[in-house]
Design a binder for these strands. Structure first.
Lengths: 180, 180
DNA sequence: ACGACATTGTTGACCTCGACAACAATCCGC
DNA sequence: GCGGATTGTTGTCGAGGTCAACAATGTCGT
């Protein structure tokens, strides 16, 4: 009986000393008669996934983000960070809550993000004149410079989407999505 | 000087005993003159984000997934799990690698996902007849039943998108995305 | 037939991110 | 002046993506 007794790979490497005998087998015994496997290189059927917008939107989003991340990897700016910098740059003095709500990011998450951007010297949190609770956000000089570079790279990224998606499809989708 | 000395919230609560004095202040000293804050309820400018397809695709994806998750919360099936069940159901006997590649999920991730679905009794990993390395995947009886329910709920979810996005926009986008 | 190499499934470890809960400081309305 | 809401903050949990290492197995060239 070949197959499937291959679990005990590197039993106890560095884990904590006390930790149960480790659920080694992982994939259960499974002792049934074999199955014809797949017909090999035959295209796999997506089934009802073909009728689900969410599936395709997800795939497209991941694909777009990968290209974006790759192109901005030089300056180490993630899509989320880019959106934060853009919004602050276009709305100097807004609060963290407004920023978070605009981008659909949790307030708590935004705190840590801004903390990082602060440490990198890209953003500032100034005391708000009217409201002692708020922080008025703005870009530092360095932040403005960085944002300019990021925008240039992001524009290249965006331009690269056109041929890959088809110019008509691209414009159609962008227009449709803006309205939603 | 009010504002911004509010960091020391719950200094050391439950954290480990030895753990540095904790980077308490978090938001740095910042001692500059205030800034006019925002003009309050004025709509926030998205800036160049308006020209980035990725931004809107991301927002749409998150929005769609939230609805999906909410509707399938009864049976506790995530979008990723749903896609896995659908693919297995439509391609009985395929391998984990094929499945992972089809859905754009890492092989390592797929292992743990299937481990969970196995434990829930929805899927099975049978020894492949031809290749001792592979596992031939398929749904258990319970998995088929569960998938049927999930498909019904997912169809409701999908139907709910139509009015919210507009029927023409919906069909246009689904068609466009399928081709990519 | 044998050995180098590729594939498959698996585990461990790390990191990002979303979601909650709790909290101090502050503001607002009555 | 007091109760309740808002803002920024920290801690914690869990889901996922990524990468490296490994054992078992299969494949191919010679």
């Amino acid at each position: 009986m070949p197959a499937v007794k291959r679990a005990p790979t590197r039993a106890k490497a560095v884990g904590k000393p006390a930790k149960k005998p480790v659920k080694r087998p992982a994939a259960a015994p499974l002792r049934k008669r074999p199955l014809p496997t797949r017909v090999s290189a035959v295209a796999i059927d997506l089934g009802v996934l073909n009728d689900h917008l969410g599936y395709f939107v997800r795939r497209l989003q991941v694909w777009i983000f990968q290209d974006f991340i790759r192109r901005l990897s030089h300056i180490d700016i993630s899509p989320a960070q880019f959106s934060v910098l853009v919004i602050i740059g276009a709305n100097e003095g807004l609060s963290q809550s407004e920023l978070a709500a605009t981008l659909g990011i949790e307030r708590a998450r935004m705190v840590r993000m801004l903390h990082l951007l602060d440490r990198r010297g890209l953003t500032e949190r100034l005391p708000s004149s009217a409201d002692g609770r708020r922080h008025a956000l703005r870009l530092t000089r360095a932040g403005q410079t960085q944002l300019k570079q990021a925008k240039a790279l992001a524009a290249q990224h965006e331009a690269s989407l056109l041929p890959k998606l088809g110019p008509e499809r691209y414009r159609m989708m962008l227009e449709a999505l803006r309205e939603i």
